[in-house]
Nucleic acid binder design. Structure first.
Lengths: 220, 220
DNA sequence: CCGCATCCCCAAAGATACTG
DNA sequence: CAGTATCTTTGGGGATGCGG
């Protein structure tokens, strides 16, 4: 049954690809970078995958030690998938792939999910020689809400869910508009010239610092 | 003809996988990390690929901007494949994948090529707080010969071919034996207790420094 | 509903033979 | 040597259905 069409090499690179090299596999892991998700959440984040392929990948990745199934305690009692510690250590791989993909000579086409947009902030965050600051952010993209925290110039938290009103600055608007803002289009400091439909409430200077520290064109 | 079975996402990670995510694709790139190769060299490094699949991947990767075909000037006049500058920028991806694969909870099985072994030296090389030194190394694994140069504690060159007798130390022996040596088995300083069949000629202290700077268990 | 299993179809991978 | 041609096999895309 299990085809196990591996490369049969002891090379650590080939071994990694044996585990996360199958089609959709690494994107399944990407969907879990912000925390556990249910089967249907994964489906929503991966349209075009198909439930059979998704179920197969989840089995493979569980057997490979990348993720585990867990049942949330009552009253939730819902089955979720979450990364193991080893699976979470794929972050540097995502970082390298994201940086490489950003340098692609051919333009990237298609949609981008809210999760991926917010994860871009974490991947490319690098204050460099800039100022050291502390702030709490809340992003509201259509229905998806995220909180982000920077402490002493270090990004300490990125998670789904709101800040319970504790945010220094709240950015809200359609996904594409916030995406344009994160890509550096429009200067949130200059009298509020944010992209269409995007509202910035609170400490605009804190937002400017975050955007300055998240230049997607940087190397490393 | 061109199926173009992409993910259709603007996410840079998905875009990278559109280019190097197909089966065998990233291993083809791996084969070219040490320089251009001919079709038959690629086949030799990738048994189990099949010439049709290999030819297809080469087309895809060329179209994707990762590699290019080139004809060596006469009298060689042989067709080779080499990485583009963007393709060469996949090094951090290989580094991250190699480190992750080394931490795998399941053992890596199979053979490892001489190229991959030598590339492991480059990937995991990190002198850290150790001494700063300069040395030229020559490795002879069966028929495969490599030269490696460290200048002021930085690895400046790793290439196929000998050192024309300029090496400070020459390590020779069967592939598995040298592999055991690089994995830290046997202490080359202790009166020459190298693994079976491996000979170390020249500056053994320089080899010890190299091995100390190439601990495959390190993090980062 | 959510979490899959099943089925059908086609495209891609594997294997082998063959040609400029 | 450097691929192409051909055939078989496997796995993915898409729809549907069923049990908990």
């Amino acid at each position: 049954m299990t085809g196990k069409r591996g490369y049969g090499e002891a090379c650590p690179i080939a071994h990694s690809l044996d585990v996360i090299g199958d089609r959709w596999a690494l994107l399944v892991v990407r969907e879990l970078r912000l925390g556990p998700k249910r089967f249907s959440d994964l489906q929503a984040g991966l349209p075009g995958a198909g439930p059979n392929v998704l179920a197969q990948r989840l089995r493979d990745l569980e057997e490979g030690g990348v993720l585990r199934r867990r049942v949330l305690p009552p009253p939730a009692s819902v089955r979720v998938y979450e990364l193991t510690e080893w699976g979470a250590e794929l972050e540097p791989v995502f970082g390298a792939l994201a940086r490489w993909g950003m340098r692609s000579p051919v333009p990237r086409t298609g949609r981008i999910s809210a999760d991926s947009m917010m994860l871009g902030l974490r991947t490319f965050f690098d204050p460099g020689d800039g100022p050291v600051w502390t702030a709490t952010y809340e992003f509201r993209l259509d229905r998806d809400v995220y909180r982000l925290r920077v402490v002493d110039g270090r990004l300490t938290e990125l998670a789904r869910g709101d800040t319970a009103g504790l945010a220094d600055v709240v950015v809200a608007g359609p996904r594409d508009g916030v995406g344009a803002l994160l890509d550096g289009e429009g200067a949130p400091l200059d009298g509020g010239t944010a992209p269409e439909g995007v509202t910035v409430a609170g400490d605009r200077a804190a937002l400017a610092r975050l955007l300055a520290a998240t230049d997607t064109r940087q190397g490393a």
